[in-house]
Amino acid sequence: MAAKIQVSTTVNGEQRRFQCEPQQTLLDVLRDELALTGTKEGCATGDCGACSVMLDGRLVDACLVLAAEVQGKKVETIEGMAQGEELHPLQRTFLEHNGSQCGICTPGMLMAARALLERNPDPSETEVRYWLAGNLCRCTGYDKIIRSVLAAAKEMRGA
């Protein structure tokens, strides 16, 4: 067996240590070693966005990051999005507008949408659609997802 690599990283603000094999991805480790199963695997090839997480403030697919690469970095996942029981405005609008249907793409959608609104608090419908193009959904036809994101943006702008 390949020698295990020791990794120390921050996940949702907590210091976490784990051991991984060199070929294991951040997605594998989040789900199987750290029990953070909110990050989903839809393809493992960067084509669906279900495993979207933030890595040092950048939106990435956790399946395209080796676990060994996150040494000393900051990882944020869906589990860290709500502040205790207080949902993020995006989480609330996804509930209110039914932007989450089966729910499998939802964590990735939310992480991606949050990254968008942090850069661009007032995106157009087209901008939201292109930003979220890397997050596949088969249940909603995207309509209610886009509405949820636009509603959250509006609310967060205080408009």
Binding site: T37, G38, T39, E41, I78, A82, N98, S100, G103, T106
Partner: peptide
């Protein structure tokens, strides 16, 4: 819904 937007919902691959 709440479990789905917080990542707590348990899907097929989420049980260990």
């Amino acid at each position: 819904g709440r479990d789905k937007v917080t990542g707590r919902a348990k899907f097929g691959a989420d049980l260990a």
